[in-house]
Amino acid sequence: MSLLDKYRIRQAENLEKTMNRVQRWAAVAIVLGLMAGSTALLAGEMKADAATASEAITRAEAAQKKADSVNGEWRDTGKFIKNAKKAVEEGDYAKAIRLANKAESEGNLGYQQAVSQSKLEIPSYLKAMY
């Protein structure tokens, strides 16, 4: 491998590192945004009643399905939804909404995670071996 190739690979690695960092912060931003959004929703005019809970669960299920359609579902999303439904049965609508919102955000993130990698990328540490 020539020096130039090595330099290029290093450049590519640096770029990947930066991208990873960017992605991580983007994910954090999304999560924070969602958290802020859902708390605002709860604190604001939205009431923690049965109808709101049921809507939140419907949204969560749609997000879960979307993630699953690209094999991007996360491990606990289904569990959150199941527990949200249980909370509705027990009349704890605030808990149900909290869980459903968590599941919805996981569904969205899992979907984005999968589609953002729709093209195969061999990571730089291995790419250098070809």
Binding site: D5, A12, I122, L126, K127, M129, Y130
Partner: peptide, 30 residues
């Protein structure tokens, strides 16, 4: 430079099974 980058990308994206296996082995040997 962009041509070379393209080439590197193209090579590993289209590498066949044997190229993959050799790349893994080379990596672990290192």
């Amino acid at each position: 430079i962009s041509l070379a980058v393209l080439l590197v990308t193209a090579v590993s994206a289209q590498a066949g099974p044997e190229e993959d296996r050799m790349a893994f082995i080379k990596y672990y040997k290192g």
